[in-house]
Design a protein around this nucleic acid. Structure first.
Lengths: 336, 336
DNA sequence: CACGTTCGTGGGATCGATTGCATAAGGTTG
DNA sequence: CAACCTTATGCAATCGATCCCACGAACGTG
C-alpha cells in the first residue's frame, strides 16, 4: 500500500541497504547516489515506517512524559518545554497523566516500555522505584523532575523550594516586616515541608522564631486559602507569604473582600509565577520556581543519557537544583 | 535480551501462534492453554513489543494530539481529557505543539503518520487540508476540534462561540442593561468573528444596535485588554462583556485600579471558565466554552472511526457543536 | 605488477508479533 | 463406520527498515 524503502530503492536504481544508508546520513555513500535516493524519496513521498525502524534498530525516538495533570501551571509548562525541545531534537513525546496514582503510574511505565521509549521524564509518585530502576537497567533513559524517590537511580531535577521560600521571607524581613504570616501545604508533602523550612530558616537568621499563630498549613485548595487568610488577618500581620499555590485562589479574593490595602497595610508574596499575578492590581511579587528551566534541564540530562553525548559528565543518580527566583513587583513595601 | 513471545510460548509449552492468540483474546483457544500462557507471561514479566505488533498488524494504538500550546486553559483541558480517555481505551497519546504554525503542523502530521498513529485529534491551523485529507484517505482517523477548515473531510467538534456570546449579552440585556461594552478578538479570527456576531445578534433581538464606541477589538493579549478597558470606561457603560480571553488579564486589574464597584456600577461577564474567575471578588459570571466536552466528544468520534463502532452513525465531514454555558455568579446585577 | 587498503554497494538475515493455511484430534450424524 | 464438521494448534510467511558480511572496483605503493 504505502511507499516503502524498497520502492524508493527501485526508483533510484539501488539496493535497499544503499537507500537506507543514503537516507540515514551514513558517510559511506557517494554524493551522487545519495542525491538520487533523496530525489526518489521526495518524488514518491516516502515516509519511513517508524515501527519497522524501531523494531530493528531498538531506537524509537520516543520519550515518555509522566506527570500528575496538565491543569497545574508548573506541570503544563514543563510539558510544553519538554515537547518543544523533543521536537527540535527529533523525538516525539508520549503523554501520560497519572493523577499521582502509583498504580496508574506503574501501568504507564510498562506501556511506555512496551512502546520502546528511548527515555522518560517523570514527575513521579516515588512509589515505583523498583520498576523504574529495572527500566533504567534495561537501558531506558530517565530523569525525575520535582519529586525524586531516594531509592531511584535516575538523576533528578528539583525545584529549590526551600531557597525560594527563604528568599521571599528574607525579602519581607529586609523590608522591616516582623509579623509575616505564612500559608503553606501540609508537611507530608515535599514542597510543603521545604517551603516551610525556608520560611523558618529565614526567620531564624534574623533572630526571630516562627509564631504558630501566623502559620496556616492545609490542602492545595482555594477554599482552604480563603479560610486561612481570614484567620490570619485576625493576627494583624504586616505581610503574607502564600506558599501554597492553589490556596492563592482563595487568599486573594479574601484580601480584596476585606478591603486590605496592598502593599499599604499588607505586603504580599505568592509562590509560582502564573500570568494572573502579573496582571493583578497591584502586580504581585512572586517566587518563580523555574518550571521552564526544570523542563529544559530535564531534557538536557535525558538527551545526554540517550545519546551518550557526554557520558561521564552527569553521573547517574545525581541531583540537580533549579534556582527559584524572586520576582519583585508592586505588592511589597515596608510596614507602616 | 528482553522476554519475547517466543520465551512465553516455550515456558507454556505451546507455539508462538498459540501464545499470541491466547494473549490477544482470540476465541479459538482452550481455557487451559490460555491460562497456561497467561501464567507464563506473568511469571516471566512478558511485555509485548509494540513496534513488532504495529509493524505486522498495522495497528499502533497510538493517537496524535496536535494543538497550539498548553498554556491556554481550553487547550490543556482538552489535552487532559483526551489523554485520560485514551488511556482508558488503551491508546497512547503523542503530543504535538504547533504554535499555530502551519509548517510545524505539517511536519508533525508526517511524523505522526510515520509512527503509524491510528488517529489524530487536531486543533489545527486549517492550512494543511490537502495533507490531512490524504491521511484520512490512508485510513487514519481524524477529528478537528475548535477550528475546522472547510476543505477538510474530517468531522469537527466546534465551540458554540456565537451562542455563548449571545447568551451572555442576552443575560445582560434581560437585567436591563443598555450600554453593554464589548471587548473581543480581531474579526480575522474565528472566535473573534463568532462572538461578536453573537453580541450583535442579541442586541438586534432586543431592538438595539451595536454602538461602535462600546466595542473594542484587538489582539489576544493582556496589554490590549487594559487599554481597551480604559477607553471603554470613558463611555460610561453599565456592563462589560470581555470575549477575548487573554484581554481579561488586563481588563480586570484595570477595573480594580479604577475602583469600579462590581456589580454595583458595572456588571461583568468573561469568556472561558478559568479557576481564577470563580475565586475573584466578586466571583465572575462567565461563559464556559465546554472544553471538557469538546475533548470528550472528539475522542468519541475518533474512537468510532478507528474501531468502526458505529460506522454509519457519524458521517465523515460532519460538524458537531458543543454548547456554551453561561455560569452566573456575583458579577452581574441590574443597572442602577 | 602483485598486493594491501579504502570505499561504495548489494545480499540476506534479523528484529518480534501476527495471521493465513494446513492439520490433527475429537465429536456428530446418516 | 465413513464422511464431515468443529475446535485447537502449529508452521511459516510476513510487515519494513537495519546492519553484518562479503565482494568488487579503484587506488596507491614498494
Amino acid at each position: 500500500m504505502a511507499i516503502t524503502l524498497k520502492d524508493v530503492a527501485g526508483a533510484a536504481g539501488v539496493s535497499r541497504s544503499t537507500a537506507s544508508r543514503a537516507l540515514s546520513g551514513s558517510l559511506l555513500i557517494s554524493p551522487e547516489t545519495r542525491a538520487a535516493v533523496e530525489e526518489a524519496a521526495a518524488k514518491l513521498g516516502y515516509r519511513p515506517n517508524r515501527a519497522a525502524s524501531t523494531l530493528r534498530s531498538r531506537q524509537s525516538h520516543l520519550i515518555g512524559l509522566v506527570l500528575n495533570n496538565l491543569i497545574n501551571a508548573s506541570f503544563h509548562t514543563i510539558a510544553e518545554v519538554v515537547q518543544r525541545r523533543a521536537a527540535v531534537e527529533n523525538y516525539q513525546v508520549m503523554l501520560c497523566i497519572t493523577d499521582a496514582d502509583p498504580r496508574r503510574e506503574e501501568s504507564f511505565l510498562r506501556t511506555l516500555a512496551a512502546y520502546g521509549v528511548d527515555g522518560l521524564i517523570m514527575i513521579g509518585t516515588g512509589k515505583n522505584a523498583a520498576l523504574t530502576n529495572a527500566l533504567l537497567a534495561e537501558g531506558i533513559g530517565m530523569v525525575s523532575v520535582i519529586r525524586a524517590a531516594a531509592e531511584s537511580a535516575a538523576p533528578s531535577v528539583l525545584a529549590a523550594d526551600r531557597e525560594g521560600a527563604h528568599a521571599a521571607t528574607t525579602h519581607l524581613l529586609d523590608l522591616g516586616h516582623e509579623r509575616i504570616a505564612f500559608i503553606g501545604g501540609e508537611l507530608t508533602t515535599n514542597s510543603g515541608r521545604e517551603r516551610f523550612a525556608g520560611y523558618e530558616q529565614a526567620l531564624r537568621e534574623h533572630g526571630r522564631q516562627v509564631e504558630q499563630d501566623l502559620v496556616e498549613r492545609g490542602p492545595f485548595d482555594p477554599a482552604f486559602g480563603a479560610e486561612a487568610t481570614t484567620r490570619l488577618l485576625r493576627q494583624n500581620p504586616t505581610a503574607l507569604f502564600t506558599a501554597n499555590h492553589e490556596a492563592v485562589f482563595g487568599a486573594l479574593p479574601t484580601l480584596v473582600a476585606a478591603g486590605i490595602d496592598i502593599p499599604g497595610r499588607l505586603s504580599l508574596i505568592c509562590y509560582e509565577d502564573i500570568p494572573w499575578l502579573r496582571w493583578w492590581q497591584p502586580a504581585v511579587t512572586v517566587v518563580d520556581n523555574g518550571a521552564r528551566e526544570l523542563g529544559e534541564l530535564a531534557m538536557d540530562l535525558l538527551l545526554q543519557q540517550i545519546e551518550k553525548r557526554s557520558p561521564g559528565e552527569h553521573g547517574t543518580g545525581r541531583s540537580y537544583r533549579v534556582g527559584a527566583k524572586l520576582i519583585t513587583r508592586a505588592s511589597c513595601a515596608p510596614p507602616r
